[in-house]
């Protein structure tokens, strides 16, 4: 092999090394954006749940108007189509920034059932939160169950 004919081979090897090196640290920006967006969406749930939970637990005074706004927000948040957030390649088997289990992509029927449970629980909350503390407290339990049902099957613990 002459020095000239070696060049393409060396370039090819260097190219492969570079690809592997980048692949180890590089996450597709579209994946990162999807993960950030779904985590932000979950944060919006938590914020509105905090308003209702504070009242349910007696830490803040019951306020029918504020409770109704928070409950309507939760119903709106759960009516969003989540599918663009969960792009293929964004499970915790693919990238480290997420606790989303591959089961989400392997079991779409189960995910849709869990989502329907959430939508039912937020609709119930939207119907009852403005009508008194007792109704709010009762709806809170079903809502907690819906959060837990999805996080039981589809979210890994922290590392």
């Amino acid at each position: 092999m002459t020095p000239m004919t070696k060049m393409p081979l060396i370039s090819a090897v260097l190219g492969m090394v570079a690809t592997v090196a980048v692949g180890a640290n590089h996450v597709d920006p579209a994946v990162t954006a999807a993960i950030k967006s779904r985590q932000s969406h979950m944060q919006l749930f938590a914020f509105n749940l905090g308003t209702l939970g504070g009242m349910a637990q007696g830490k803040t005074e019951y306020d029918a108007e504020k409770a109704q706004v928070a409950a309507s927000n939760l119903a709106a948040l759960s009516s969003v189509d989540f599918s663009p957030y969960f792009v293929v390649g964004s499970s915790n088997a693919d990238v480290s920034e997420t606790r989303a289990l591959p089961a989400i992509w392997e079991d779409p029927e189960g995910v849709l059932a869990a989502l329907a449970q959430l939508q039912g629980a937020t609709a119930e909350m939207a119907d009852s939160a403005g009508g008194g503390l007792e109704g709010l407290q009762a709806a809170m339990s079903a809502l907690g169950g819906a959060c837990g049902a999805c996080h039981q099957a589809y979210r890994a613990p922290y590392n």
């Binding site: 938590a46 939970g53 339990s141 907690g144 039981q152 890994a156 613990p157």
Partner: peptide, 20 residues
């Protein structure tokens, strides 16, 4: 009692059944 953390995240994994 509720499965909600102080910041209103929820229990996940095996802990969901424990709380049930």
């Amino acid at each position: 009692k509720t499965g909600f953390t102080p910041t209103f995240d929820s229990a996940g994994g095996e802990m969901v059944k424990v709380i049930a």
